[in-house]
Design a protein around this nucleic acid. Sequence first.
RNA 1: GGUCUCUUGGCCGAGUGGCUAGGCACCGGUCUGCAAAACCGCCUACUCCGGUUCGAAUCCGGAAGAGACCUCCA
Length: 488
Amino acid sequence: MDKNIVVFNTLTRKKEKFEPLNSAFVGMYVCGPTVYGDPHLGHARPAITFDLIFRYLKHVGYKVRYVRNITDVGHLENDADEGEDKIEKKARLEQLEPMEVAQYYLDRYHKFMDRLNVLRPSIEPRASGHIIEQVEMVKKIIKSGYAYEVNGSIYFDVEKYNKKNNYGKLSGRVLEDLLANTRDLEGQDEKKNPFDFALWKKASPEHIMHWSSPWSEGFPGWHLECSAMSTKYLGEYFDIHGGGMDLLFPHHECEIAQSVAANGKEPVKYWLHNNMITINGQKMGKSLGNFITLEEFFTGNHKSLSQAFSPMTIRFFILQAHYRSTVDFSNEALQAAEKGLKKLMQGIVTLNKIKPSANSDVNIIKLQHDCYDAMNDDFNSPIVISNLFEAVRIINSANDGKEKLTIKDIESLKKLFNDFAYDILGLRDDSLYSGNNSIDGLMELILSLRKNAKENKDFSTSDKIRDELLKIGITLKDTKDGAVWKVE
RNA sequence: GGUCUCUUGGCCGAGUGGCUAGGCACCGGUCUGCAAAACCGCCUACUCCGGUUCGAAUCCGGAAGAGACCUCCA
């Protein structure tokens, strides 16, 4: 199996040959969701990006441990470290237990990721379940001298760390610049420097979620969980750390600093970052009013959506852009993706009907090689898709009798789609479905009645059946092989 | 303001110093009782101004525009 993979490493800002620390194994950690709100488009991009990478690494034969955390504690809502815990705030708002809220949104997250055909990671550790590990890590950092305590809170001493290490190596920041450009924020009196960050924060009396520690009743700083949990499950030095570009600074920068301070070594060999999503050219944000949840996409129930878009359309659309490019959502672009996906899926159906020839006009093996080359070059899914469309064109031409395919060609094409469309890109055909046996049987009956009517040239009956079905949301299409139907 | 990134045809989006993806839309055709769909074909772009080069959309410099991070965010 060809494993000649090249990845773009944010740390070095160039493409590097991918060579895992243990040749047969890959450890991958990706920053997961904060479960205090409904899953939205912003959750889909990194989930799908790293799902693609997870799937491909497994496909080429690596044994992969994929860890994606669930943040159910610790991220602060307001500026600096003075805000309430996000989970807590939502909980009080809705009069629920904090963990009840976290569980609800975690379930929602899983539900929608499943619909996007995103595979579950190997481990999904929750921050609240790893308080002990985080406390231990704080102790190590204090011991190494890079943290200080103020009123029961522990802060990371960035300036001291930067004397012997390079704080800013990942994000390209320079500490002096940071200092010069830091805004004056209220309530930062405790910190020596504004760019210092909390490792442990003493909880205020109204703060519901808190745990005991040697320093105070409190909660962990918001960068700490990733460092603690990645170390626990993947070791002090592991292969891949992923996440959105927005996490580059300060989150990932702080993770490096924490790990170096605690363990004395760099935590990650390859840093991979997916780019962001925009909507009609604008950043998606709650304050901008263009915030769209996945449920709204799937139902079409949002003022800026012209229609519902299926999970596979969203997935396909995201995969049509390279993960390091921004991707712009618009109704027009999504409709284009929807049609393209349909064409691709139809091509796979057509493939099963082709009659083999004795000789061949095409080179399927080259297509396969091109797909592997594309994936090996920093997971270039758009190129893979363009090659699959070339395969579809060949299939349709063969179906029209314009090109010839041998049995071997057909088998190669089936393998191409199985490997790349289904296994690696994680696509599936969700356009024609019912999932209900009695409805299937019912529709079969109705379609056979309509077929009889058509054969008797009784078009008023056949049209009536089609029109009435349309009124209840079932679309009929007459094809060469009979009518097909789908529920809108 | 600081740091960084981007600017490709009607739209979305790959990509490479010369051989110039792909999808959608348009247009032409095939199929069809009609409709819709489907299928085939077709359209040759790279923000602007300089420079390097036999040759640049691709490298360098400048300009304009857009975006990201610096502050919760995927």
